Amino acid sequence: MALEREYDFWLLDLDGTLVDVEWSYTREVFDQVGDRLGREFTDQEADILWNGLTGSRDRQLEEWGVDPTAFWEAFHEEEDPLVRAEQTYLHEDAAFVADLEVPVGLVTHCQEFLCEPVLDAVGIRDWFDARLCCTEETGWKPDPEPVQSVMADLGVAHNGHRGVLAGDGANDVGAAWNAGIDAIHVERVGHERRGQCVLGDYRVRSFDELS
């Protein structure tokens, strides 16, 4: 990949960037969460929340009159790590990450109890030299703290190294820029479905375009 030579390190998001899950799994989880909360989620609402199409999921939930804390408690209780891992697939164009010869880190909102089985199921655990699953303690993208934490783990913080973060959402781009590195936005769902365009230093529909 031509861009590899431009950067001293790479950071990547996970869900929607490197991997995705079958829609049937997403639909089932939202049905179960809806039963818990006494509130049905339409296909469009499930799509918006799962893919973060409107940015902050918590803000979107509040706009719909759903308490974010109650939603996430129900959501994580209903997610089965092994089932999710079985229904997760790796995007073919993500294969370039395995060949990167610079430090590589993972910065994801996917919770650790879900992330670990997914990494094993799709066989990409050894792609990363450092990983961080965001929590309330670490902060959430677009805050720069999670990105800066992984940069520190990689030994590339505050020493002039040039890096990039690739992700599928506006929060990924914001986190990269807030941390002072470049951003690649890979648009997996299309701006028509998203309802807006996400700007980045690079905007692609597939990582193959970067070559």
Rank of each mutant, 00 (worst) to 15 (best):
Y202K: 15
R194H: 06
E28L: 06
L165I: 11
D153W: 03
V21E: 05
Q32W: 01
E4L: 08
D120P: 08
W50M: 04
L106D: 10
R203F: 14
E45R: 14
R162M: 01
N51W: 14
Y89H: 07
A176M: 13
S149K: 15
V21K: 05
R5C: 00
G169R: 15
E79T: 14
W140N: 10
A98P: 02
G190Q: 10
G55E: 04
L154H: 10
F113G: 04
E145P: 02
Q196E: 14
R57H: 03
G160A: 08
V164P: 03
V156L: 09
Y89D: 02
G55W: 04
D67Q: 05
G34S: 03
V118Y: 08
E112G: 01
M1A: 09
W72Y: 15
L210G: 00
V164L: 04
T54I: 05
D13F: 08
D201Q: 11
H91I: 00
L132E: 06
P117V: 02
D126S: 05
Y202I: 02
A98C: 04
F9Q: 09
E22C: 04
S56H: 14
I181L: 12
H191P: 15
F41T: 05
G38K: 04
E187H: 12
T108Q: 08
E22R: 06
L18R: 15
E101W: 00
A179C: 11
E4H: 06
E92T: 00
Q148G: 07
D126R: 08
H76F: 13
F113H: 14
E112F: 06
